[in-house]
Nucleic acid binder design. Structure first.
Lengths: 167, 167
DNA sequence: ATAAACTTTCAATAATTATTGAAAGTTTAA
DNA sequence: TTAAACTTTCAATAATTATTGAAAGTTTAT
């Protein structure tokens, strides 16, 4: 397999994977492209490589910046904006985990909290709803705590401990 | 908040959450409904509660059974089929983690392996692609190992150790 | 102040994904 | 074996989500 083939495969795989876990295809492909690029890319570069429109590129770059995965790079003397992505997979994992906690886990915790105000009327079905809501609440809180600890631990000692623990 | 309100909120929240991580809305809602039900439900029950068609209900129940989250329950004397879901959140987590590893992580590992056959032509861009592919490969393997260890450990000592470790 | 170089926005459209409902299929009881 | 009770399948349709492209917006150089 030569470079071009491998690049296309890498980018498209990352793209379809991304859409699987809630990031759209173009967004994931842009990130993939930047991830294996040895220099910052301009909007033109990205449009040309991925064969997508200017609007699409602009919007998805913005989203990637919102996630904190991609940053603008200003090259002196150049008018165009250039973009790079976080290159360290560990750091990338941390950023993604943090954002997903914020965007997905937090809202669930919020709703589960709201549900705790259900009035216990003594019926079995209400008891079951309360019980299961509570079980889910505990689980979600634990998961979130784990993610946050991981995320706030730059040195990543947890991962190391984990791997040792697990092997 | 009374029982009906809470039930609706629980089911619809679970539904939208589900769609966020790659399970469709109806599928997630059916699971949610079963999760808080004190007795097995028939297709009719589910259709009525969620206001969805017979076809939709049938297909999504099948998917839930494929995932191993929902099981058929035959009630003696009854012609209809009844359904229940795994009620223990820990066990539910294990099943979901396992399936997601199989469906999502394994295919990525496969592609990353294929990419390892790229020919190193000595250029910087090829070196970068190789390096980043390898980094991702290692990360993915580690993540998958963690998930599998978790999953094969019914007693769930890992979670307990983790929580201790993390606190 | 003007124009060139560039980016963003957003209504229209395309692509994808979910849902319906009725016909076909299956199982059970008599 | 027949018919009633039930489930599955799948082509048609609806709903959602992504993408385009051109107009509007912004920045920089002169």
């Amino acid at each position: 397999m030569n470079y071009e083939e491998a690049k296309i495969k890498f980018v498209s795989t990352w793209g379809s994977l991304g859409s699987l876990w809630g990031i759209n295809k173009a967004m994931a492909q842009i990130q993939a492209l930047l991830f294996i690029s040895i220099k910052p890319l301009s909007m033109e570069d990205i449009m040309a490589e991925l064969q997508i429109s200017r609007g699409n590129t602009s919007m998805n770059l913005r989203q990637l910046m919102d996630w904190g995965i991609v940053t603008k790079e200003l090259i002196p003397g150049e008018r165009k904006e250039y973009f790079t992505t976080e290159k360290d997979v560990q750091e990338l994992t941390r950023i993604i985990a943090k954002e997903r906690s914020r965007r997905e886990i937090q809202p669930v915790i919020k709703v589960l909290n709201e549900l705790s105000s259900i009035k216990d009327d003594g019926t079995d079905k209400t008891k079951e709803l309360i019980k299961q809501t509570k079980a889910l609440h505990d689980l979600t809180l634990n998961a979130d705590t784990m993610i946050n600890k991981l995320v706030n631990q730059k040195q990543n000692w947890i991962t190391k401990s984990l791997i040792k623990l697990i092997k």
